[in-house]
Simulated assay, not measured.
Amino acid sequence: MDVDGDIDTEGTEGRALRPGWTTGACATAAAAAATTALFGGDFPDPVTITLPGGQRPAFALAVTERGDGWAEAGVIKDAGDDPDVTHGALVRARVTAGAGGSGVTFRAGPGVGTVTLPGLPLPVGEPAINPVPRAMIREAVTAVAQAAGRAPDLVVEIGIDNGEVLARRTMNARLGIIGGLSVLGTTGIVVPYSCGAWIASIHRGVDVARAAGLPHVAACTGRTSEAAVTRHYGLPEQALLDMGDFAGGTLKYLRRHPVPHLTIAGGFAKLGKLAQGLMDLHSKRHAVDLDWLAGVLADLGATPDLVAKARGANTALEVLQLADAASLPVADRVAEMARAVALRVLEDAPITVDVIVIDRQGGIIGQAGGVGQAHSPLPR
């Protein structure tokens, strides 16, 4: 994922993870090669570009074509060790001459989406080619044009093979990017397994919701909780934030960019971590504190024997089942405590907060701060 800053790129076994290149860097390389061919030169292969940080990587060309008044080149994206949906995709750039004085203009080719909602860093109707990749492409093709003694009046069409299908595995439709993928990147370099891109997508989701005037958003830890919130509140897709494990990044951004009503939804274990005050809910960073959960049961009036069983439990689910058998509303208590933590992080932001705890089947088993808090019991 493309981020700026210092990121830990050590794998789980101590192996240094291999970085890769952003879609924007690949599109820039393809556009530079196509522009060279358009002006009568040979396709440079490999083609070298300059990244925003000054690095000069070289890219092999996978596709080269030209015809009357156009040239096209393609680069296969290598995202390194990052689990990027576009890893291995063919990124194409077709360049044609534009009208005199038009400068460099951009079009969405097959597989690249179009912006249809406000709140993104591009106007509605524009191809989903983000500002930094646009600047990289513009600089690269302008340099080629000047070297050839030509005016940089060019139409650059970026496409990604199979992009419309790949986009179904991203948040693009929710953000109002229709018809394909986005051309992204701020550094040109993909840093594997970083959290920065995910948090950035949460921020953009908040921006889109605010620009659309939505009064209610839901920050969810996964697809099951999204489905539960959608059933419970009937929220539109643009109101759903894929928070994942990044509670802190979500709440801190909302503190600065508030919406009137926030629902936080997730499973018992993850929201139990939030209730403890943890901002990173990932299992690799923080395990469920069973002693803490046992203490919650004690506060709810559990017998010493039940508290001891909770302390010796293997999972949070086992504690939940023990509490349910004893008719102790532990999920409601976890929701109350998670809500209190969220309100502390939000400080004095004008946001009403409710929390929904769900089971693995998507049923609501705990709630705090909402209207009409009836919920289904945990299946036995």
Rank of each mutant, 00 (worst) to 15 (best):
V183I: 15
R174I: 12
V156W: 11
A151Q: 13
G185C: 08
T187E: 06
V156C: 14
L166W: 06
G163A: 05
S182I: 05
M171T: 13
V183D: 00
V183F: 13
G185H: 07
R168C: 07
G179L: 05
G176R: 08
A151K: 14
I177D: 10
N172I: 13
M171I: 15
M171S: 11
E164P: 00
A173L: 15
A167N: 00
T186K: 12
A167R: 07
I158Y: 09
T186E: 10
I158M: 11
V183E: 08
I160G: 00
I178L: 15
I177W: 03
D153Y: 14
P152M: 02
L181A: 05
D153E: 15
I178T: 15
R174T: 05
L154R: 06
A173H: 10
D161F: 12
D161Y: 07
R174H: 13
G179K: 06
I160H: 09
A151T: 14
A151L: 12
R168G: 14
L184M: 02
G179P: 09
G180H: 06
I178P: 04
L154P: 12
G159N: 04
D153L: 15
E164H: 07
V155L: 02
A151N: 06
L175V: 08
G180D: 04
R168I: 12
V165W: 01
L181T: 04
T187R: 12
G185Q: 10
I177H: 06
L175G: 03
N172W: 03
V165M: 02
L181S: 06
R174A: 03
R174P: 00
I160W: 10
L184I: 14
G159D: 09
T170L: 11
E157N: 04
G163L: 05
L175W: 03
V165H: 01
G176T: 07
L175S: 00
P152A: 05
A173Q: 11
V156P: 13
T170E: 12
D161M: 03
G163N: 01
T187H: 11
A167T: 05
G185V: 06
R168A: 14
L184R: 00
A167L: 08
T187C: 08
T170I: 12
I178A: 00
I158C: 11
P152Q: 05
I160M: 10
L166Y: 03
G176E: 00
R169Y: 15
A151C: 02
S182T: 14
A167V: 10
L184N: 03
I178R: 04
I177P: 02
T170A: 00
N172G: 13
R174M: 12
L175E: 03
I177A: 11
V155K: 13
D153P: 15
T170Y: 11
R174E: 00
L175Y: 06
T170M: 03
V183K: 01
L166G: 04
G176K: 06
I160Y: 05
P152V: 13
R168N: 12
L181V: 05
G179M: 10
T186C: 05
V183C: 06
L154W: 15
